[in-house]
Design a protein around this nucleic acid. Structure first.
Lengths: 219, 219
DNA sequence: TCATTTCCGTTGTAAAAACAACAGACTTGT
DNA sequence: ACAAGTCTGTTGTTTTTACAACGGAAATGA
């Protein structure tokens, strides 16, 4: 577990907290480490959790499959990112989505109650973690609204432009790699893969974008 | 301002706090009351805020209009509900959406910093408000994911079924009124109004639902 | 009460997406 | 190195949606 402390130091949750202090808090918060192989589910829709998770290795998808097998990728989780925080509140109900390991993963589980209630030992930086958690949820909230803004577009082309623009803004560059292959991007935008593939090529022919595999450039 | 204390008592933010204590906190948190006529904007996309707002009278829409004039209603805000909490964090950037009064409204503004930092007078129930705020954001988060689940449906019919099912679940009844007219519902689901209107009638003919104006019944 | 506006369903047409099926390029694992 | 599998773009067909325009019903307001 200790080998992940440098990673935790750079997460939103432990921002501003030193490695030694993180080490102390890991036991204070009773963190548990679990590993998953590519393709395994970390959490399944319908489960109840009282943990907040931090991904310290690999890549995850928050996703959902409907009756007809249509997959919808809600979000991508990279190393250092938190997930499950929406279920931090008591009585938050069952998970709505699956969490799938798309690469071999390592995940740290933290007991929510131990985070949001003052710990008996009164860790010096406990209250800072609470505030960090608060800001992180707030940011996640904005991300979700951004995705809603993207999903509310009518056509595939508009969705693509919206998504690619956001990615360009996020990378501070008109050239960037995306964390999805074509099928995953289609699932993320909730459109048909082949239709999207065609639309991407049409956008390239129209001189809007260039791309090679997962690398895109906005023109 | 005092006349709204009974309303505040029943909000998520002030849950578990007595009316007298709320009265004390209103000054402690330096609350400000603003009123808006139907059709006025409470907040506009691009603004920067450091407040959390509670609607104490009327009805609001969180929405966004794109270049082409397509309106997309992100969320509906009713009396007692909070909004703007996603921008509670510092450096949370400019507002992504407009907030429109769809009825005459009264809104209470609270300074975020005064909520999340311990107040000088150390109000007895300040920490409870912080936790309430935390849970409220967490719940908003789940609501957004639920809407994403709805928006990720491919067809208008699936979106309608998804939305109406959630409403039925929320009302604990297969018969309920929705807070939208047809155009607003179409904007909320990001579909064409006339196409949606037709689909609703087809669903009625197929024996899936019944409706009269804003009142729907699932069969 | 009457005129005006808003709301809702309907229709027809054009545009777009979903779906299915396929072939070539590329990866992966043995 | 080779076989199997995956990923991507392409095409054609069917289904669905968007758009525009209209009429009647209901609500609003002077």
């Amino acid at each position: 577990m200790k080998k992940y402390i440098p990673i935790l130091k750079n997460t939103k949750l432990f921002s501003g907290i030193s490695e030694e202090e993180i080490n102390t808090m890991l036991s204070c918060l009773q963190a548990k480490l679990c590993t998953y192989k590519k393709g395994e589910y970390v959490l399944r829709q319908g489960e109840y959790i009282d943990n907040i998770m931090v991904l310290v290795e690999g890549k995850l998808h928050i996703q959902r499959d409907d009756y007809w097998g249509n997959r919808s990728i809600i979000n991508m989780v990279g190393v250092g990112e938190m997930f499950g925080e929406a279920y931090a509140a008591p009585e938050s109900g069952a998970l709505m989505n699956d969490v799938l390991a798309v690469e071999d993963c390592a995940v740290l589980f933290f007991d929510v109650k131990r985070i949001i209630t003052v710990c008996p030992a009164a860790c010096r930086f406990h209250s800072m973690v609470v505030q960090n958690l608060f800001f992180a949820i707030s940011e996640k909230n904005r991300q979700l609204m951004q995705k809603l803004g993207c999903m509310s577009r009518r056509t595939t082309r508009e969705k693509l432009i919206s998504y690619l623009s956001e990615e360009a803004k996020r990378h501070n560059s008109s050239s960037f790699s995306i964390p999805f292959n074509r099928q995953q991007l289609a699932d993320y935008l909730s459109v048909d893969r082949s239709a999207m593939s065609g639309e991407l090529c049409r956008m390239r022919d129209d001189g809007l974008i260039e791309f090679d595999k997962n690398r895109f450039t906005l023109l």
